[in-house]
Each structure stands twice: as structure tokens, then as C-alpha cells.
Design a protein around this nucleic acid. Structure first.
Lengths: 121, 121
DNA sequence: CCTGAAAATGACAATCATTTTCATTTCAGA
DNA sequence: TCTGAAATGAAAATGATTGTCATTTTCAGG
């Protein structure tokens, strides 16, 4: 675990959810850290293979990362204005577990998002 | 529905599962079809938005496609080998509706996927 | 048959995330 | 202080996907 990895973990903590490598890089830049994009990618790879960070994919194929073991939440996203509401997802957790068990899958995770039009729009 | 889309559907039928745009393009070339890569991409986009084809992502971010079944389903995806199982998601449908109602959202849709390691891996 | 507008096509270039390369810097231990 | 391996990051390479645009095909109406 080197300095870069620690910096990356720190941003991920601040973010509190998923973020792409490019986003993390920009956040680090803005907060005055001197770190290159290449290094961010390398730190993320390393953290993923150490199972400290979870990696999955956005719909457009971009990789997104978050700290493992986060008690994560889900989002209700407005298609018009982009505002988001954090929502509770214990139903999803149960569904994930049930489906995984039914099909013999191990080490399961999931993604779930709801999008629509918010009351203000 | 134009000629290209029909060609693409035909290959997808032959493949019988997931394939990337590049793979489909090569298969079409090998079977003597005259079709450009751009056109394959366009046909796939169109088929996806018409819900004739399902699109999701390999672990490396490459998009893969296959013919839709007729029911709205979700996927259980193996992180290692990429094999997928269609799963039932009525719990998700209910959750989506409930959350949307609670927060006053209209015209809601959702995405949900479970990923893990399958019994064979 | 024509004919022209609209849709479809595909070669090529552009984009963008990610990876590779490689020269330089850091730093722990001798 | 010296030394070599690991870390760093700028820049180039890669590879999937998308955008551009000139050409071709389709086809309805004359």
C-alpha cells in the first residue's frame, strides 16, 4: 500500500459511492493533490486485485469504483434535471441474495438505479 | 427494420448467445455478407432501442449483444467467465413502483443487475 | 420506365477510456 | 552517501465506439 493508493482511498471515502477513474483523478486535482492519471489507474487496479475496491461498469462501459464493504445505497435519478435522491434498498439486497443462492453464485454484488421525472420537473 | 438489421438478427440467431459488435462483424464477413462495421453498430443500436436486442457489458467494458426474450428480465452475470442467467425480477418492479410513489417521481424505469461468480468458476 | 428526395451505407477520421512505454524520481537499506 | 528496485507521470499507443460525409439504394409519383 503506497502513497497513491492511500490518496485514492481517501477520495473514495469522500465520494462515498461509485466514481470513475477520470472523476477520481479530477477530484484529486481539484483538492490540490499532485497525482497523475496513470497513477490513479494503477492504484485502482492494485486496490481492486487486493479486494479493497469494487469495480464494475456504467452502462456506457466506463469502469466505476467504490470502496468494498460500503453499506451502499441506491439512487432515484431525475431524467430531466439530474437531481438524485438516496433510497433504501433492502428489498434489493434480499433479492440479490435469493437469486444468487438459487443459481449457486458466490461473491455477489449488484447495481440498481431508478430513473424517472421528479416532482419539480 | 432494414436489410442490415435483418442480417444482424440472423447472425445473432446463429450465435445463440452473446457476441460483441466486432465479433458479429467478423462472422458476417466470413459468411460472405457485405456489410460495414459502422452499419453493424448502427443496426445494433437500433435493435437495442427497439428492445429486440439486449445489450450489456463484458468485464473489460466491451458491449455484448443477444436477442431478447420477450419478457422483461434481469441478469445474473459471472464476473469470471461472463456467462449469464436470466432471472425474474418482480420484486424489483414492485420496489421501483414503491420508491417512485414515495418520492413523487413519474415515468420511472430501472436498471438492475447482479454479478458474482458462477458455480463452474 | 425516369427522377429526385429521403434513407441507408460504409470508408475514414475523431473521440475517449484505458494501457503501455520509458525516462525520471523517490527512497529504503547497505 | 550510494544503489537499485519500485513508483511516478507525460506522452504515445490501443481499441471500441461514434461522427462525418460522400456515395449508393430505395421507392413513390409522374
Amino acid at each position: 500500500m503506497n502513497k497513491s493508493e492511500i490518496k485514492v482511498i481517501a477520495v473514495l471515502e469522500r465520494v462515498g459511492g461509485f466514481a470513475s477513474a477520470q472523476e477520481l483523478y479530477q477530484l484529486l486535482q481539484r483538492s490540490g493533490e499532485s497525482i497523475g492519471l496513470t497513477t490513479v489507474y494503477r492504484a485502482l487496479q492494485s486496490l481492486v486485485s487486493d479486494k479493497i475496491v469494487d469495480q464494475l461498469r456504467r452502462e456506457d462501459g466506463e469502469a466505476i469504483y467504490r470502496l468494498c464493504g460500503d453499506t451502499h445505497h441506491h439512487h432515484l435519478v431525475c431524467k430531466q434535471c439530474g437531481s438524485t435522491v438516496e433510497i433504501e434498498g433492502s428489498a434489493i439486497e434480499r433479492w440479490t441474495k435469493a437469486m444468487a443462492e438459487e443459481h449457486g453464485f458466490r461473491e455477489v454484488g449488484h447495481t440498481a438505479e431508478i430513473f424517472g421525472i421528479c416532482p419539480n420537473c
